[in-house]
Amino acid sequence: MEKTATDLFIARAEAAAAQVHAVPDEAAAAKEVEAIRAEKGADGGAHGERALPSGVGVVRAAKGIAQTGTCIVVTDDEALRLETMLPEVSVILLNSADILPDLPSAAPFLRAEQTQGRASYVSFITGPSRTADIERVSAIGVHGPLELHIVLIGGRP
């Protein structure tokens, strides 16, 4: 059976330690986001470290990339960008119709963003922040989010 771009996206995003929530439509997506907020709590739930700003950040991706399980988020807006950086739990909404096959196929989108006569900041996000800097032990959650949830709209029936 041939894998669809959506199936591949899910597999690759999960391989990068993201948690994918496939939902049928926008209404279901909103519910899913609320459920994640409720579970993780406004203060970051079980991960709460009071010294650090925490909580759940929610943004919307413009595109996805199947081959790498990546979300492309336009983060020109500083506050929105920080939503993807400071909280311990990051949620990204992605429409399955926006999934591109691979990195090179993102060039036209990126070029359009960068040629609008203004400055831009585009983030390719693949899984939560991670490091292997101590003894090459893979550790999830360094300076960015400890968890990445992708709410994939129209992903699966």
Binding site: R12, G69, L103, T126, R130, G144
Partner: peptide, 20 residues
Amino acid sequence: ATGQRLTSYVTFIDGATACA
């Protein structure tokens, strides 16, 4: 570099964006 398909973040900065 690390056997990853892509790193967690690839950032494309194109000029000076708004900064509070």
